[in-house]
């Protein structure tokens, strides 16, 4: 905690404390003042201990665009789940596992995190290694690989993060 690499912004402290506090209220569900004060103290303490890690706060417009991205991601998940179900129930097991390397044009830490998690969440592809903007992805057959190489998901995420400052 003493060797803190980045400065703490008070905005960051406030938002993280409030998120943890809402979670506390949801779990405890009692509105005595002593419980509320205890929760506020605990969430502030946790935020203070963790304040060196990630000072990136998404703006409101970014949250909105991420929420609009989620239904499309869910559509992809359903599509590839049905494909994987067909593969598993096929008696001949027609899979061709392979490791492929994907180079993306994304230049923001949060964008890379979102991209990798989306790839892993879609059944059929899984992220194995991340180095700056090069990802190594394991794909179960050629259909999943072509789906990944069509760059559809990457262009959607680049659209979300188009007016952020690049920091990679």
């Amino acid at each position: 905690m003493l060797t803190r690499s980045r400065p703490i912004s008070s905005e960051f402290l406030f938002f993280k404390t409030m998120t943890l506090f809402v979670f506390w209220v949801l779990l405890s569900a009692s509105f005595d003042w002593i419980h509320l004060a205890l929760g506020l103290a605990c969430s502030f303490g946790v935020t203070w201990l963790n304040s060196g890690h990630s000072p990136f706060i998404p703006k409101f417009g970014l949250w909105l665009r991420i929420f609009l991205y989620l239904p499309w991601l869910f559509y992809k998940i359903v599509q590839s789940s049905l494909h994987l179900t067909k593969l598993i129930l096929d008696p001949a097991l027609p899979i061709e596992p392979q490791l492929i390397s994907v180079e993306s044009k994304l230049n923001h830490h949060a964008a890379i995190v979102l991209f990798g998690n989306s790839i892993t969440l879609t059944p059929g592809t899984i992220t194995a290694e991340v180095d700056h903007n090069k990802l190594i992805v394991h794909a179960i057959d050629n259909v999943s690989r072509e789906d990944l190489e069509s760059k559809q998901m990457e262009s959607k995420i680049a659209e979300i993060f188009k007016d952020e400052k690049p920091d990679l």
């Binding site: 998940i77 359903v78 789940s81 994987l84 179900t85 598993i88 129930l89 097991l93 899979i95 596992p97 892993t120 969440l121 879609t122 059944p123 059929g124 899984i126 394991h138 179960i140």
Partner: peptide, 25 residues
């Protein structure tokens, strides 16, 4: 289907696809 996949599929990587099918859908 995911449990069948975890038993049938041949290696770690493809089994992890089956586990992620469980988790997601």
């Amino acid at each position: 289907v995911a449990a069948i996949g975890v038993i049938r599929l041949p290696d770690v990587f493809s089994r992890s696809h089956a586990v992620s099918l469980t988790d997601s859908l």
